[in-house]
Design a protein around this nucleic acid. Structure first.
Lengths: 192, 192
DNA sequence: GAGATAACGTACCGATAGGTATAAAACTTG
DNA sequence: CAAGTTTTATACCTATCGGTACGTTATCTC
């Protein structure tokens, strides 16, 4: 009883194209025409496969976390607390100033979508960020190699903050090499 | 020979209203209707007094730097390098998590306007940021009380990065009290 | 008070926003 | 091959976008 015309595009590949557009231009700066052009499909196909713009963004955000942003979860598997922090900070540079991807961080960009129609999108981004920081805090609670004056929650917040700063710097055009120096200096200040 | 009907609104006050809207909603998230409503004037008056949306934003950005953002220049007058850094970081918290102003930083938000029509605005914000950091670097070059392993340029970049991170955190909803703790912890890591 | 000047309010402009109705096309199942 | 199903492409919808033409109103100068 199924049947029907098969779709002529790869949904995952199309989602990746949508990710790149949203990542580069932000939610508000991206039109449906931008999306359909980049994805190589037309609007009815987009709506049938992904829902409206807001829902598509939700799926793109999930893919972002699962792909380019996966380092944040992976970093928590490092053996020591210091190494967790190092991986997060270096990972932020690699992500936000990567050579084959747009500059900046999709999540940070989305937090700054302030228009009336972007409320849900901003909330999504905020929720993702909060969950990530909570996971980092829990991981740091189990580390015993960090300078003793750090409370895990406070250190998690600070690492998150520095990571955000790196994303802004990348979005504002600072290059990868310079950004790596900033990251190394931050790590020395934090961990030495 | 002058004459003519006098304008029925205070241009400076209107600019302040425009500032608040842009600050809260970002450049792309703000429509002319949002602006005229907040400013209490209609479109022809807006265009006659401030030019188009892009030019208005330029004037708003200048006013932002001269008003809420003036602490960045004022901080450079502090007697010691340490105090300069402290004022900048604490000032970032006060600015981005102030109780009577929108959360976040207009300049950081504007950097994240990624749409095709926002190119000039993003460039403006980037230029302002670059100038600010250069001024900070020059000030730090003349400080002799900072930990000796800091190069002024690198420290300026790191302080700027942390300041950006604070702005993102504020935009993402972290409250003032928590943010102050983050700032204090960052200062201890940087300067102790 | 008569002109000249400039800001005002309204009503409008083309372009584009996000989103959909409709019908042709491409497949699976019987 | 015919029926049923789903995707495709085109063409269109309303609302709003940034921006402006135009006639009215208020002021200054003479």
């Amino acid at each position: 009883m199924p049947g029907g015309r098969p779709r002529s595009f790869d949904a995952d590949a199309a989602l990746d194209r949508a990710l790149e557009v949203f990542w580069r231009q932000g939610y508000e700066g991206t039109s449906l025409t931008d999306l359909t052009t980049a994805m190589g499909i037309n609007k009815p196909s987009l709506y049938a496969a992904f829902g409206n713009k807001e829902e598509l963004f939700g799926k793109v955000l999930a893919r972002y976390l699962d792909g380019p942003g996966a380092y944040t979860a992976a970093a928590l598997d490092a053996p020591t607390g210091r190494e967790v922090v190092e991986r997060l900070i270096h990972g932020a540079v690699a992500l936000t100033a990567g050579e084959d991807t747009p500059e900046g961080c999709l999540c940070v960009k989305s937090v700054h979508a302030g228009g009336p129609d972007s409320h849900a999108v901003r909330q999504d981004a905020v929720a993702v960020r909060k969950a990530g920081e909570a996971a980092l805090r829990r991981r740091l609670e189990q580390a015993d190699d960090l300078p003793s004056h750090y409370e895990p929650a406070a250190l998690a917040a600070l690492v998150h903050t520095i990571s955000d700063g790196i994303a802004v710097q990348a979005a504002a055009g600072r290059g990868r090499d310079e950004l790596r120096q900033v990251a190394d200096l931050a790590l020395r200040a934090l961990l030495d």
